[in-house]
Design a protein around this nucleic acid. Structure first.
Lengths: 239, 239
DNA sequence: GTCTATATGTGGATAGAC
DNA sequence: GTCTATCCACATATAGAC
């Protein structure tokens, strides 16, 4: 509705020690509360209170609640996603355009999973994991924008790593990969509830040791057309 | 906050043709709107309008917005989850306690994926997929309650199908399975956006043909301890 | 840049007529 | 059972003093 909010406030911000501190406190508070309760369930009031500031300051710095979410995401994702793209490009180049799928998965998923080694990183993963299925159009728009570039790199690299998969099969397999990655990040507690105490999705080593091989093996499954029951058993056209 | 809402209204409901019609119209409207926008982003007013009724009627029949969500979920899940449990129990029994993992996955995931064959089933999957990462405590409580029993059946059957996996490894693999299943249901449009037109998660045949084998193969990966780099290559203790 | 006070809208829930 | 009218809490956003 008010998409044309005052972005000038952001552009005209100049170095001011006190100002930057407030700004960062608001970002920290927003990140924490968005992660805990979800974008739509948190008010700018709560954020301002948590930041020991007030609503007006939040609007002064970020123009709107939407702009605040954008800033919260950009603050961390700009760096993370640049690294993921760099790793993806590099493993493509190192392998002469035919990377191993485990390297591609590691480049795309590894950096995000490892975020959970710190408490604030874990919180940020919770935020993005929950946001990934948020129906709010504002949230969707921002996510599509922030993840578009790295997502394209990933699909391209995965396609190069699995040249004998049809585009349809790649689509479904990468959906499963995305799903697993986001579910780990969103950490909804379902499996912990079923498995009892002692199991946690925040265990980065467990994720790398157990989830990554699951996904790698799944990606390496033979193409479904060739694996169909009673179908031509051995002939395939490439590779 | 108001968890002790008037449940008597539900209990005291007796057969009344006009009443039941209104009730069903409200459930239909709530299901549609919850699926579209998420529980927290829909007001009871919108639901009442969509049902060509009013807020008071919704509160009369369901006591609260929370009670309404509970009824929306129960209406379909009671049947679906009973069927899933029946299938899981059956494939355990048929295999003498050692079922094939693909049968377990099919029993647990198949019935929900096939819901998407109808438009209203697809909408319902959207609703539950989005709800699965909803941070709202009301939503979490209801989901845990509605899925607890079938979830335990599934974990038990999966453990029986994969006896050589440690509990930790099973935990992580089933997390991946859950993640893929929920991501397909939540259908956030990310992969369609990256793959372009012609690809859709509503394609039930595609899901069964491509996603299920991915998950089955992942579950069948050798245990990670034995698959560790440069580790003992062939000796394993069971099976 | 930061605040208080406020404008303006909408949320869930209920009272009470019919 | 169904409705209108209403209570009250809280949302985003802004005006204007400092």
């Amino acid at each position: 509705m008010v998409g044309t909010a005052i972005r000038t406030a952001i552009g005209s911000r100049r170095a001011s020690a006190a100002g930057r501190e407030t700004r960062e406190r608001i970002l920290d508070a927003a990140e924490r509360l968005f992660a805990e309760s979800g974008y739509s369930n948190v008010s700018t009031r709560q954020i301002a209170d948590e930041a020991r500031s007030n609503i007006a300051a939040a609007h002064y710095h970020f123009g709107s609640k939407e702009g605040l979410l954008e800033a919260v995401l950009g603050r961390r994702l700009d760096g993370i996603n640049a690294e993921r793209e760099r790793l993806l490009t590099q493993c493509m180049r190192d392998a002469g355009g035919r990377p191993a799928i485990q390297d591609v998965l590691e480049a795309f998923i590894g950096p995000t999973l490892r975020l959970s080694k710190t408490e604030e990183g874990r919180r940020f993963n919770l935020l993005t994991g929950r946001a990934s299925t948020d129906p709010n159009p504002e949230v969707k728009r921002i996510l599509f924008q922030v993840y578009d570039s790295v997502g394209r790199c990933f699909v391209e690299a995965a396609a190069a790593a699995c040249p004998d998969l049809s585009k349809a099969e790649l689509f479904w397999r990468l959906t499963c990969v995305y799903g697993a990655m986001m579910y780990i990040r969103a950490d909804n507690g379902r499996l912990q509830h079923l498995f009892g105490p002692g199991f946690t999705l925040s265990d980065v080593d467990g994720a790398l040791k157990y989830a990554m091989p699951f996904l790698t093996t799944g990606m390496q499954a033979p193409p479904s057309a060739a694996a169909a029951p009673d179908a031509t058993p051995s002939r395939r056209e490439d590779d």
